[in-house]
Amino acid sequence: MTSKVYVALRVKATPQRAFAVFTEEIGAWWRPSGLFQTTPRAPGALAFADGRLTETLANGKVFEIGKVLAWEPPERLVFSWRQANFPPDLHTEVEVCFEAVGDETRVSVEHRGFHQVPAGSAARHGFPDHALLARLAEYWQAQLRSVGARAELR
């Protein structure tokens, strides 16, 4: 078994639009957080390209956050997720789903395996599992609010 953090939000947009904004405009809506730092540097620009989710830093270096594991527009997207402060062998997984509900879309994120971040890791900030996963849920809720606000712009 693995831990799961699931959050969902209704967005006033089609699944096509929500999927496109999520993937093509992630550089615009992504909200970095000091709690879940992808790299120790200042936040860079995120992008999905060539089967990867990358972050390009100000110094031009490219950090690979993850690989795209499933790309099924406009319904589903799965990618692996690792932060620079993770142990080398630790990979977690993020699944994003876009489900039409009437004229809206229910966008959900499920982040699996984050509890594997070892005790003492900088990525854990000393939090026990429950608190860590609760903060992770809040982090993804903020991301969903941001992608939703952008998807609703026309």
Binding site: S3, Y6, V7, A8, H115, D129, L133, A134, A137
Partner: peptide, 15 residues
């Protein structure tokens, strides 16, 4: 509608 679910590594609902 489910808006948040946190499960521990045993699959138990934490929140």
């Amino acid at each position: 509608e489910l808006s948040m679910l946190i499960e521990d590594d045993q699959g138990n609902v934490a929140h």
